[in-house]
Design a protein around this nucleic acid. Sequence first.
DNA 1: ATACGATTTTGATTTATGTCAAAAATCGGG
DNA 2: CCCGATTTTTGACATAAATCAAAATCGTAT
Lengths: 187, 187
Amino acid sequence: MKLEETVSALISPNEALFEALRREFSAVSLPRNELVFSVGNVARHIFYIEKGLARMFYYNEAGKDITYEFFPENNFMAPSESFLEQKPSPYSIELLEDSELRLVSLDGLNRLLEEFPVVEKIKSHILAHFLYQANRRIVALQFQNAPQRYETLEQTKGNILQRAPLGHIASYLGITQETLSRIRGRK
Amino acid sequence: MKLEETVSALISPNEALFEALRREFSAVSLPRNELVFSVGNVARHIFYIEKGLARMFYYNEAGKDITYEFFPENNFMAPSESFLEQKPSPYSIELLEDSELRLVSLDGLNRLLEEFPVVEKIKSHILAHFLYQANRRIVALQFQNAPQRYETLEQTKGNILQRAPLGHIASYLGITQETLSRIRGRK
DNA sequence: ATACGATTTTGATTTATGTCAAAAATCGGG
DNA sequence: CCCGATTTTTGACATAAATCAAAATCGTAT
């Protein structure tokens, strides 16, 4: 079970905790194109993606579909602000491949936190990890040009390039798909 | 004491904890232009800025000084990844105004965490807050044009516009100072 | 294997923003 | 209060990337 492995890497293993995790995290297999969470709702779950690929996206003022982030297997994924603050999310999440997910509800997470205070550390770790990713993203968007950002993505999440459609990758990079196609062409 | 107020807003107050905070967070007043932390070092402190204004910045490959973030009074501030993972930081922090800071060392923080497990919650809160900020930043940089980003900054951190020099604001927005000057001119 | 729709590429043109240079305004120390 | 240094503005031009349009390619269901 991938979730267990990820958790083990964060804290010293503990069988009682693992049992609780198995109890609180339900497993579900969903097909490609499934909308796992949709805009306007309050997030009621945190997901862990054991297999497959998902993307979180939003529609900008012009109504354009913009990919905010990709989540390949072995990652936690959630509209964090919506989930933690229990407010409506501007983002949706959809699957780009047939996927296997684990999900925990807010109640489930709170039970875990109460029973195993060490879970707060896992939470910190996950948040910190999200934050580092976001930081790198900002640096890239702030002062790299399009080919450099593509290069950066290739280095950090190379497999996404083969797995996600062009348009999604382009909006993730903050460019149009025509520009991305040209960048690819020149290499 | 501002730090206490901020902490009180996050968890239910507790005099013993406050006393420990006073013990572990030293206070220091520093003048404008002071370099509080510099690139290449491993961060040994987390700062809380009670009064004044600071900025975190880095030099990109072209050697250009780029402002990554501004920290006005009543904010926690740190090269988080460097501090939490104890590795060298690509960022420096300098004061843009005479400031009053509180700072806690990693040891100090660990003592607090051990003595008051609830501090882990404060940590999660702070990380979550940083993450939300970063998320908004990414959305702005990903698909807003320069005037829109300026507008967004005006709405979210309007006072910075009067307090920080043009060049720093421009690099924060991912544009040149000439472009920023023109945006201001047209309004 | 074929055909249709979706995705990607290519081309021509426009636009936003960068670059380089110099003038104007502002700031801070003596 | 004044002067040199720094910061901001303005101008002319260059360039990266957007837009609009159409052609080519790919993937999938029949």
